[in-house]
Design a protein around this nucleic acid. Sequence first.
DNA 1: TCAATAGTGTCTATAAGACATTATACT
DNA 2: AGTATAATGTCTTATAGACACTATTGA
Lengths: 242, 242
Amino acid sequence: MTTNDEQVYLSTYNIKDFDVPLYSVDIAIYTLHEGQLKILLVQRGDFPDKGKWSLPGGFVDLKEDTNIEITARRKLLSKTGIHAPLLEQVATQGNASRDPRGWSVTTLYMALIPYEQTSDFVDSVADAQWWPMADAMNLELAFDHQQLMQQARERLKTKTAYTVLPLHVVKAPFSLTQLQQAFELLMDKKLEKKSFRRRIANAELLKEVGEGVPEGGKGRPAALYIPAPGSDQHLFIRAFAD
Amino acid sequence: MTTNDEQVYLSTYNIKDFDVPLYSVDIAIYTLHEGQLKILLVQRGDFPDKGKWSLPGGFVDLKEDTNIEITARRKLLSKTGIHAPLLEQVATQGNASRDPRGWSVTTLYMALIPYEQTSDFVDSVADAQWWPMADAMNLELAFDHQQLMQQARERLKTKTAYTVLPLHVVKAPFSLTQLQQAFELLMDKKLEKKSFRRRIANAELLKEVGEGVPEGGKGRPAALYIPAPGSDQHLFIRAFAD
DNA sequence: TCAATAGTGTCTATAAGACATTATACT
DNA sequence: AGTATAATGTCTTATAGACACTATTGA
């Protein structure tokens, strides 16, 4: 019961005396490009499931990583070259059958990045590629990554209905039309223009920074905006309908 | 690249050749009693943090548990005697410093149970005790359990604002007054009686099953209800205000 | 009749849905 | 002028907040 007892206990404790599951972190990284929602997949170079496409991810580096979010950011950086996108935890899956090596647990994160900030880097990563979600849904991914990918997709949809998550996936400055398109792609649902603009305007989330060319190059120029500080914390009490 | 190669790889793979973090599952188990929100805590019998109060939880049994939710249910059963309460995953915390034994990861679940179904069993578990949340918040819990407990508490509050989560914490049949009290305790906020009843009525979530005595024994008798099948899946598009 | 609890009526405020209309650019 | 895109006006619908009021019981 004394501190001394505890020190003896800890000094003789060895995790390798126990059976523990494998533990990994995986990330569903999304972007918008060519009017589509795309996800970054990597082709596995090693067993198991060698050659199959999978979510970026891997094991914790117990020496270098101080927490699991840092593990996720490290993986993200190595595949996208980006340090600080939106990154949030989705859920953790763990069971005896998802990995042939044995009982394993993975914590799933999702990330959102503007395509322009990362396309060159991604092109330079040999095993990484952006896939349109419509196509990725038909791939046979490694492990249970198809299920993980869909779980992240679902979270993206739900959170977009009552937050301003899509602010993280458009490059600033942006027009309201562009922002609405981002909302629509992430929610997989058309929105009413007036309702959308009223909602954004009332919440006072954006700062106008000038004018830009309209979508498609023709028509009235659009006002351009950047997110106001702290705007990404905003929660609407009412969600868009399903 | 052949199946044979993969079999060779798997047959020589040994998790103990690698450094992996400790992995555990912890549960914040809530109930309502004496007009208060209470949480079930257990006093640690072993190092580390021997003697401190903590959330129920522990390691995965790689032989018996087929997934992490089953691990959570096993822990829940051993402390409450209950098989099937509401149980949902909250989040996963993992870092180098939360456990003195080394890098460790824990997946936090939360559970809701009606007090009456479990009080006798809990009384019989020597190291377990219901704590009013107000008191528990001032305890020095083991590891980072104080933070975990608050994270679960926050989730409880948020989800109650747009779901019918409190249905799981009242014993059926119940009066609307009792149900509203459950909502208020979980949200830590008073609700308007009319707004609350309208919301519940419009959603058609309950089935009337008779009449019961009013709260406090005096006054007009209250209609009693049970949840309709599938009612616990209901999502309101509009949340109660903060 | 009084006190206590259950339950309803109704007005207001807020915000989304629907959709028509106006504004501003380029060719 | 014609066309394309941006932006606004306005009516309707849905639902929460506020609060007064009625209903039903036992002492």
